[in-house]
């Protein structure tokens, strides 16, 4: 299953996400979820960046006072239109963690 997972919290549901093992996972960091793309808490980047292909919503990064050049290189910064395209073309199922 190709699963798109929306993450809108900085402190997301780690336990559930860790258990979701499937063919392909795409993670959409939106709202407070984008903190996972830019922060290194105690010098360590978020574990979520290892969970699949990670996208982060550019508007929500900027809304929180960060710049795109602060985003971890594993993360692709996207706009709403890109998210629509990914929802329609890349993932069979979508969940909001």
């Amino acid at each position: 299953m190709k699963l798109g997972i929306f993450v809108s919290d900085f402190r997301y549901d780690v336990k559930t996400l860790d258990k979701v093992k499937t063919d392909e996972i795409g993670i959409f960091l939106v709202q407070d979820g984008v903190y996972n793309a830019v922060l290194k808490e105690n010098g360590k980047s978020s574990d979520i960046l290892e969970k699949g292909k990670v996208f982060a919503l550019g508007d929500d990064i900027k809304f929180r006072g960060f710049k795109e050049d602060q985003v971890d290189e594993r993360v692709e910064v996207v706009g709403y239109e890109d998210i629509v395209d990914l929802m329609m073309n890349n993932y069979e199922k979508l969940i909001w963690l």
Binding site: M1, L3, T16, V20, T22, K93, L94, I95, W96, L97
Partner: peptide
């Protein structure tokens, strides 16, 4: 169950 479903809702 998630794999086999047509749609998953969390």
């Amino acid at each position: 169950g998630m794999e086999e479903a047509d749609m998953v809702m969390f």
